[in-house]
């Protein structure tokens, strides 16, 4: 899952010099993920993983890093 998220974010939303150096805990918001990027990311996740992410959970905390994103998605896939 993280590989797909990494590919989408680094190809479509945030450009960074060396994605391999970007850890799963590094801060995506600091790297340049903005509100419009978050909107596109959410649409991508909902299509790709067949989940519905509740409106009230769209918070910086849940999109801050790849680890946070994965945990958020998994919570809804299992739920």
């Amino acid at each position: 899952m993280k590989k797909k998220l990494r590919d989408f974010i680094f190809q479509e939303l945030v450009f960074i010099a060396d994605p391999a150096q970007f850890s799963d805990d590094d801060d995506l918001l600091e790297a340049g993920l903005d509100s419009m990027g978050i909107m596109r990311l959410i649409m991508f996740i909902e299509n790709e993983y067949g989940v519905t992410l509740p409106d009230t959970e769209i918070e910086p905390d849940n999109v801050q890093s790849f680890n946070a994103l994965e945990q958020w998605i998994l919570r809804h896939q299992n739920g």
Partner: peptide
Amino acid sequence: PSLLSFIALKGS
């Protein structure tokens, strides 16, 4: 509009 789109999509 981009912010209003976000509200329409996920603004409760």
